[in-house]
């Protein structure tokens, strides 16, 4: 079996290089801010919905008392079935959006690398 290539990482305070792949602190910061916005927006929705359940339970009688299908109340139906659909939808869409941000970082980094190479070629 062939020996896999080794990642000779170069790490400084302004960039990390693995082979031809470079992350700069500026490009990482740009994507980090977008990632933070994405994670915290989803986090806010998640906690708002999750904590809305006990809030409705404590303060809205119709939520736990009104039966809508057989013995299901809104409260029972949401916690036993709908909550999971909510979680799956959130996790799936979040993962897809986070993957897109990863690609954005990769493209940004590739452009930086190409620019550096072009500048070096011009100077030569």
């Amino acid at each position: 079996m062939a020996t896999p290539p080794s990642s000779e990482a170069t790490i400084t305070s302004t960039y990390i290089r693995h082979g031809d792949h470079v992350d700069t602190i500026e490009s990482v910061d740009i994507v980090f801010r977008e990632q933070r916005k994405l994670s915290f927006t989803y986090g806010f929705i998640f906690f708002a919905v999750t904590l809305a359940v006990p809030a409705l339970t404590v303060w809205v009688e119709a939520w736990w008392k009104t039966t809508i299908w057989g013995g299901f109340t809104w409260n029972y139906l949401f916690i036993s079935l709908l909550y999971y659909i909510f979680l799956w939808t959130m996790a799936w869409t979040y993962s897809k959006k986070a993957d897109t941000l990863d690609l954005k970082l990769a493209k940004m980094a590739d452009k930086i690398t190409a620019d550096v190479a072009a500048t070096a070629a011009t100077e030569d």
Binding site: I16, R17, D23, D29, F32
Partner: peptide, 10 residues
Amino acid sequence: WMRIHGNAHE
């Protein structure tokens, strides 16, 4: 910060 949020290694 770059190790946590960057992905050059990946």
